[in-house]
Nucleic acid binder design. Structure first.
Lengths: 293, 293
DNA sequence: ATGAATACATAAGTTGTGCTTATCTATTGC
DNA sequence: GCAATAGATAAGCACAACTTATGTATTCAT
C-alpha cells in the first residue's frame, strides 16, 4: 500500500525546488509567496524532515530535498505530458455516429468539405441504427432522429423529419394511382412502418390494418430508398435526404402530401460536457452552415 | 510551461483505473464512492474526454483512459517511493550537535549504549560552540547550555550548569590556599571568564577587576579542564562534566563553594516539528534515562 | 552607516473545493 | 420478483488552501 504525501504540496515543492525561490515559484503557480511557504512547511512536516535550508534571502535544498526534487520533477513531467497528449488526442479525432440514411445521402458527399476546412481533425464516421449512449461509447457527436429532447445532450435540429411516398417513375406509370387511397393496394415497401399510418392519416385515408399486409420488411430508409429506386415498390422517404434522386426524377412522389411525426427532426447531438470541445464546436458550426446554405 | 490536471483527481483516477471499480478505489483511498465518482468526472471534464466507459455495474477505461492510467501509476509510484525513502532516510541518521565539553566528558563514553539499543539509527555527532540554528543546519538535536528558553524548540534540562574551581592535587599542595580570596593571586585559567566573577561573588570575595590580569585565555571548558589536570592552573569547571577525574582525585576542588549562573543548565533541545520523529524520541528517552540513573 | 529593497515566515480571516450523507437508477443474480 | 450491487447525482458542510497584512532578516546602494 502506497502512502503518498499531499500532491498539491508536492507540486508546490517541485516548483520551489526548481526555482530555489519561493516567490518565483508562487508566480509560476499563480499563487502568493505565503501559500508556497505554507505548502512547503506542510510537506516538510509530512515527510518528517526539512526539505529546504532557510538561508538569508534565499533557500537551498537539504539533502532530503535534493534527493526528492528531481524525482518530483520527473513524475510531474510524466503526468503533464500524458495528460497533455490525451487532451491533444481527444481533439485530434472526431467520432460521428450517424443514421445510415443521413450518412449516405447527405453527410457522405459533404464531409470532405469539413475535412478540407479542418485538416487537423481526423473524422471517424460510424453508422448505427441505435441511439448512441455517450456514457458507454466513445462517440463525440451523434446524428439521429427524434424529438430533440434528450437529457444531458445538446441538440441542434438539422432537417425536418418529413416523409412522403416515393417510387420510380416506371412503377408509377404502371400503377396509375389516382388518389392516396389507391396506395393501399399498391406494393408498399415496409408497410409495417408506423409512419405509413401517419402518412395515411395526413392524407385523410383510413388505412385499416395496413401492417397486417404481407410485404417486404426493411428497417432502414437507406434500403427502402434503394428498393424504390429500382422499382420494387413505394417507399416512405424523407425528401430532404434524397434531393438528388428527386431532382433527377429517379424518385417521384405520386402525391403532394407530406407526413410529419410530431416535431420530429434529424438532430445533431452531443453531451453537454463536450460543448467546449474545439472539434465539436467546429463540426457543429460547419454542419449548421452547410445545412442552411 | 507545464499544465497539470488537479493532482488529487489524478490520484483518485489512478486508483479507480487500477481497480476498474469506483467503490473499491474509494475503500483504498479511505473515502466514499461518491467522492471517487466526483473526482473522476472532474478530471474527465478537465481533460476534455471521458476516461471511463460506464457499463452496467462496472466501468472500463476508454482509449484515453487506458493510455493515461499506466503513466499515472508510474508517476505516483515514483513519488511514493521517493518520499518513502526520504522519510526512512530521515529516520536513519541522527545528527547531534553538542557542546565540546559535554560531548567529550559525558556523551562520548555513553553514546555506544544508545547505538547498541538502537542499531537501526546511525549517529553523527557534531561539535560546535555556536548555538545551532535548526532552520539553517541539518541537525536533529542539540546539546547546549543556557536558560532553556528558546522559542520554537523543545528543551529538556540535563545537567545543572554549576561551576567551581578545580586544580590538580600537586598544584593545590604547592599553592596552600586557605580562603577563596587566596585564589585571586593564584594562577587562574581563563580569568576573564565572566563565571569567575559569579563564583567569587558566591564565595563572598570582592574580585576587583579580575579580568584585567594577564593569563591564559581559553574558550572552552574542555581545554581548561585539560590545563587544570596537567597542573597549569586553577580552572572553573562544571563538576558534573568531570566526574571521573574528580572521583579519581586528579581534579580537586579547594573549596566547597559552587557557583551557578541563574537557572542555567545543559539542555537537550530539538525543534517542535521533530517532536514526533522516532529517532529523536528514542534519543530523548535514552539520554534522560542515562542522565538520571 | 543608513535607508530601500528583497525574501521568507507567520497570523488571521475568507473561500471554495472536496468531501459525506442520502437518495436514485440500472443491472445482476437467486 | 426481490435483494444485492455498482455508479450517478444532489445538497450541504467542513476544513484545507488560499489571500492579505505584517514581521523579520539580510543585502545592497549611496
Amino acid at each position: 500500500m502506497r502512502s503518498l504525501p499531499p500532491l498539491s504540496a508536492v507540486r508546490v515543492f517541485e516548483a520551489a525546488a526548481r526555482h530555489l525561490n519561493f516567490t518565483r515559484a508562487a508566480a509560476e503557480l499563480g499563487m502568493t509567496q505565503a501559500a508556497v511557504s505554507y505548502q512547503v512547511k506542510l510537506l516538510e512536516e509530512r515527510v518528517g524532515t526539512p526539505l529546504f535550508l532557510r538561508a538569508a534571502r534565499r533557500v537551498e535544498l537539504t539533502e532530503a530535498g535534493a534527493r526528492i526534487a528531481p524525482v518530483a520533477t520527473q513524475a510531474l513531467d510524466l503526468l503533464g505530458t500524458a495528460f497533455q497528449a490525451a487532451r491533444n488526442d481527444s481533439e485530434a479525432v472526431l467520432v460521428i455516429s450517424s443514421l445510415h440514411t443521413f450518412a449516405s445521402n447527405w453527410l457522405a458527399k459533404r464531409l470532405g468539405s469539413f475535412q478540407l476546412a479542418h485538416p487537423e481533425i481526423a473524422v471517424r464516421l460510424e453508422i448505427s441504427s441505435h441511439l448512441v449512449d455517450f456514457a458507454r461509447e466513445e462517440v463525440d457527436v451523434g446524428l439521429r432522429g427524434g424529438s430533440g429532447r434528450w437529457p444531458g445532450l445538446v441538440a441542434h435540429p438539422l432537417l425536418p423529419w418529413h416523409f412522403a411516398p416515393y417510387a420510380s417513375p416506371d412503377l408509377l406509370a404502371r400503377l396509375d394511382l389516382a388518389t392516396p387511397a389507391d396506395l393501399l393496394s399498391a406494393p408498399l415497401i415496409s408497410p409495417d412502418d408506423p409512419w405509413w399510418r401517419h402518412w395515411f392519416a395526413a392524407a385523410g385515408v383510413d388505412a385499416g390494418d395496413i401492417a397486417a399486409r404481407p410485404a417486404v420488411l426493411m428497417g432502414m430508409q437507406q434500403l427502402q430508398g434503394a428498393a424504390a429506386l429500382s422499382g420494387q415498390g413505394i417507399a416512405l422517404l424523407t425528401p430532404s435526404l434524397w434531393p438528388d434522386d428527386i431532382a433527377a426524377g429517379r424518385l417521384v412522389a405520386p402525391f403532394d402530401i407530406v407526413g410529419r411525426e410530431g416535431e420530429g427532426s434529424i438532430w445533431l447531438v452531443y453531451p453537454e460536457s463536450k460543448r467546449g470541445s474545439r472539434k465539436v464546436r467546429a463540426f457543429r458550426d460547419w454542419i449548421l452552415a452547410a445545412i442552411r446554405p
